[in-house]
């Protein structure tokens, strides 16, 4: 698509959303059998699969920390995830995203419970459509919970941007390409911001407004994340007492 004349027409964005609307979001928890935890997320045009393995032994050995678990995060775009084929493998951009996303999640994972171990998070972008790093963080957070890893809370993330001089929530591809600012933000439910990056320019006042919109967006996403995890076990959850753990006996 070539640069459209206007990105906002009559107060509506090109895909019909208002400035405060997010794209449709769908989380599905526990979709992979081999992984300890997983999540498939459709976030507008983004299709993201996150898998969590661990805690497990650290290889290579020198990476291990004697007092806590290490978190490793790999953000990877499939070669078919964008229009022009993406050359496979890590590049400058995905290494950076892996680092900031890891830092966005590390703060909530209770790493001190699992010394000398590693928690591996793999995020594959199957289809990219602006905001894939926030989609990755959202999916990874659900996958971590699904893996049974103790955390202080979930992490939710959303991008805010500026198009045609207006601050809007959750940019899509065209808005991202032709807009004038993009501000991905991740936060936990207590409102602590764990990721904040910015492309382009915003005035201080705009930044404040953008932040407020991101807080609202993250709250909505947090609800959806919770919902996805609760739905995984359906409505019929009423196990009776889990016994105080005790080994079985042989009956010989």
């Amino acid at each position: 698509m070539s640069k459209p004349e206007k990105l906002i027409v009559d107060g509506k964005r090109l895909d019909g959303r208002g400035p405060f609307d997010m794209r449709p979001i769908k989380f599905t928890a526990g979709v992979l059998k081999r992984a300890d935890g997983s999540c498939y997320l459709e976030f507008g045009g983004n299709k993201v699969m996150a898998a969590v393995y661990g805690p497990r032994e650290v290889h290579p050995r020198h990476m291990q920390n004697a007092s806590r678990a290490i978190v490793r995060y790999r953000y990877n775009m499939a070669s078919f995830s964008v229009e022009e084929r993406k050359r496979p493998g890590p590049d400058r951009r995905s290494i950076e995203i892996s680092k900031v996303s890891r830092e966005a999640l590390e703060g909530v994972v209770m790493e001190e419970l699992y010394p000398r171990s590693a928690i591996d998070v793999f995020v594959e972008i199957l289809q990219a459509d602006a905001g894939s790093r926030v989609a990755g963080i959202n999916a990874a957070s659900v996958a971590l919970a699904d893996a049974g890893i103790p955390m202080k809370c979930l992490v939710s993330a959303v991008a805010v941007g500026k198009i045609d001089g207006e601050v809007v929530l959750d940019l899509n591809k065209d808005e991202d390409n032709y807009g004038s600012a993009d501000l991905p933000i991740a936060m936990n439910q207590f409102g602590e911001i764990t990721l904040c990056q910015m492309d382009g320019h915003l005035t201080e006042e705009e930044f404040g407004r953008a932040l407020d919109m991101a807080v609202d967006g993250c709250k909505k996403i947090h609800e959806l994340q919770k919902q996805a995890l609760i739905e995984k076990y359906g409505q019929d959850i009423t196990p009776d007492v889990a016994q105080p753990i005790e080994g079985g006996e042989t009956n010989e």
């Binding site: 979930l154 995890l229 076990y233």
Partner: peptide, 12 residues
């Protein structure tokens, strides 16, 4: 039997 409630990390 008591209805058990599913919680996620961070629930009060």
């Amino acid at each position: 039997m008591v209805e058990r409630e599913v919680v996620v990390p961070g629930d009060l």
